[in-house]
Nucleic acid binder design. Structure first.
Length: 604
RNA sequence: GCCGACGUAGCUCAGUGGUAGAGCAGCGGUUUCGUAAACCGCUGGCCGGGAGUUCGAAUCUCCCCGUCGGCUCCA
């Protein structure tokens, strides 16, 4: 995503008119200028590239003298200097300058990036905007706040190395990220929002709730703990049920295949750097599968097929491994080991659109269950593609039509060049707790792999034809999906997914009649298919056990004591931890209510 | 992989050149209590790993591993 290229277009050109009231975007753009002014003061000779406003803040990219890098101490010093400049109420002044004059100005200051930006401007641009803040001069269209006194609620957040113009083949520049608001209160509210996001972080909650963990010997490869396996199994059971009734047939296949398979599929040439490869002797190497598709082709080819069988829907939930670069790993959201809820559907070309409709139906069924916000994105032909352009164009046109029908024109984004190497795709995108966007489900159209593997079916006229294949996942990866769910629900999973659905707490754990009753209660709930456990942690008071259940985000907690047993009416007090409510319920009603909630898979 | 930061008990963290600490968790005991933390005691550490500097290193330097935030890449 070379968004810097876009930003440059916004930076250079004739100045824009300032509105009556500066917007947050203007404020942040001005904050970026002030930061750059501080950098040029503290690091004489620093060259500045682009510094746009972004969501919640701004950044600015620099090349520091002598190849220096920003450290955290530098960040603190820049924060202090920026604050000083803000306190001085330095005006932002704008002027329009002939292009050649501006070029000479920036060339004279040794600002190579600005000269470069000017040189890459279109022919028609003959004048550009130049803004000054004290001694600091920038090529910019503005608009800006009147003076730096507006920039009191600015906080520099972090430093990062970034590739010039977003391309890793280029040199790495030094970027400073910051946030800016109209008031200290707004700034504090924003920082509090970040803190809240941190509390929802699935990596923290995953450990606290004992869902999964990691070990240093398997970076990026989650260990699923007993609680987490319950969540996974519930998601998969639901998935299998929904797919069986829609005509999917599940297969399982080897996790490793000889290199030859990956050569046929094209992964050896196009995906090898992301594969775990294991040499077994001088001649032979095995590749651990990063995708299920090649083995789905192998299964398809294990017998001959008739046109009557199509669409043939082979599903597959095997575990995949991808050798993701170390710096990209992020808990469950970016892992090296994950399980996809995969399927490969062999179709004739005429069947493609109808099959996509069916897949969209499944998608809505699943995503609406969780009250999740999601968006579609079309990924088109990448530079590194296999096959021919005409086939790609045809496939992309089909997906575009389908998307327009399901999401409406403009109801989806298009990411040029982001398709898989074998075909274009429709992705389902979701955001995590701090607003980062992740690809979840994906529906990919592929004319290449069936051809490479020689997949055929016998058509009505007896001729052998090659089917197309739709690769599709709904959850995406189970790991990523669970990660997003945890953050979405802040750990309070829907009842049907909760590892413990109901916790039973005795008031007096030394009273045999109480313990006998509570154990019978557990048996009744378990027999009804509910996951109920007794918390009789010895030596703790009832209050401590309730707190413990709260912290583990158990949806329902039932406290039972002598008074209940003596009353003998089978009514218990139920604590609903997600809604902070308590209610007296007959045990039968409690069971019925929970079963109903599980069956409906209500999100909360 | 690149830039920055971090790594001390199961967890959260203090300790910045001179004998490794706290809270929580765990274990033992006392307590049996009515909806978010009872009390007392006890365990628990190659201070991520390796090399170096130093009389002496958790602390300083270098290399490696892992983690976190970006970049790039992606389910």
């Amino acid at each position: 995503m070379p968004d810097e290229v876009v930003d440059e277009a916004a930076e250079a050109g004739l100045p824009l008119e300032a509105p009556e009231e500066p917007s947050l975007e203007i404020l942040r753009h001005s904050a970026a200028h002030l930061l750059a002014a501080a950098v040029t003061q503290l690091f004489p000779g620093a060259q500045y590239d682009v510094g746009p406003p972004i969501e919640d803040g701004f950044f600015y990219n620099f090349r520091l003298p002598d190849g220096r890098h920003f450290s955290d101490e530098d960040l603190a010093a820049l924060q202090a200097r920026t604050a000083e400049l803000a306190a001085q109420h330095i005006p932002f002044t704008r002027e329009v300058m002939p292009r050649d004059d501006a070029r000479a100005l920036f060339a004279g200051m040794g600002q190579d990036f600005k000269v470069d930006i000017i040189d890459r401007l279109g022919e028609s641009v003959d004048a550009v905007g130049v803004y000054r803040t004290g001694d600091f001069v920038d090529l910019c269209r503005g608009p800006h706040v009147p003076d730096s006194g507006w920039l009191q609620a600015v906080k520099l957040l972090r430093v990062a190395g970034v590739y010039w113009r977003g391309d890793e083949r280029n040199e790495q520049l030094q970027r400073v990220y910051g946030t800016a608001w109209f008031s200290e209160q707004d700034l504090d509210a924003y920082l509090e929002r970040l803190a809240e996001a941190e509390r929802r972080d699935h990596r923290r909650l995953g450990r606290e709730l004992q869902l999964f963990d990691f070990d240093a010997t398997a970076p990026g490869m989650p260990y699923w703990l007993p609680n987490g396996v319950i969540v996974l199994n519930e998601l998969l059971a639901f998935w299998r049920d929904e797919h069986q009734r829609r005509g999917y047939q599940e297969i399982m296949s080897p996790l490793i295949n000889e290199k030859r398979l990956w050569e046929i599929s094209g992964h050896w040439d196009h995906y090898r750097t992301e594969m775990f490869v294991m040499p077994v002797d001088e001649q032979t190497a095995y590749g651990v599968k990063p995708m299920n598709c090649p083995n789905a082709m192998v299964v398809y080819n294990m017998r001959r097929h008739s046109y009557r069988e199509l669409p043939l829907r082979l599903s597959d939930c095997d575990i995949l491994h991808r050798f993701e670069r170390s710096g990209t790993l992020h808990g469950l959201l970016r892992a090296r080991k994950f399980q996809q809820d995969d399927a490969h559907i062999f179709v004739t070309e005429e069947q493609i659109e109808a099959e996509y409709d069916r897949i969209f139906e499944i998608t809505h069924r699943f995503y609406s269950l969780f009250d999740l916000r999601y968006a579609f994105r079309l990924g088109t032909r990448p530079d590194d593609f296999i096959g021919d352009v005409e086939t790609w164009d045809r496939a992309e046109a089909a997906l575009l039509r389908i998307l327009e029908r399901h999401a409406g024109a403009g109801g989806f984004g298009v990411d040029a060049g982001e398709g898989a190497f074998y075909g274009p795709k429709i992705d389902i995108m979701m955001e995590d707790a701090i607003g980062r966007s992740w690809q979840m489900g994906t529906i990919q159209l592929d004319f290449q792999l069936p051809r490479r593997f020689g997949c055929t079916y016998v058509d009505t006229d007896g001729a052998e034809r090659t089917p197309a294949v739709i690769h599709r996942v709904i959850y995406g990866s189970l790991e990523r999906f669970v990660g997003v769910l945890i953050e979405h629900f802040a750990g309070h999973l829907p009842l049907w997914l909760a590892p413990v659905q109901c916790e039973l707490v005795p008031v007096q754990d030394d009273a045999p009649e109480v313990m006998a009753y509570i154990e019978s209660l557990q048996q009744r709930l378990n027999a009804a298919g509910l996951r109920a456990v007794v918390n009789d942690h010895h030596g703790e008071r009832m209050q401590a056990r309730v707190r413990d259940a709260e912290l583990r985000k158990v949806p329902y907690v039932v406290v039972v004591g002598r008074r209940d047993v003596e009353r003998g009416d089978d009514v218990v007090r139920v604590r609903d931890t997600r809604h902070g409510a308590q209610v007296d319920l007959a045990v039968d009603s409690l069971a019925a209510q929970l079963i109903d909630e599980v069956r409906a898979r209500r999100p909360s």
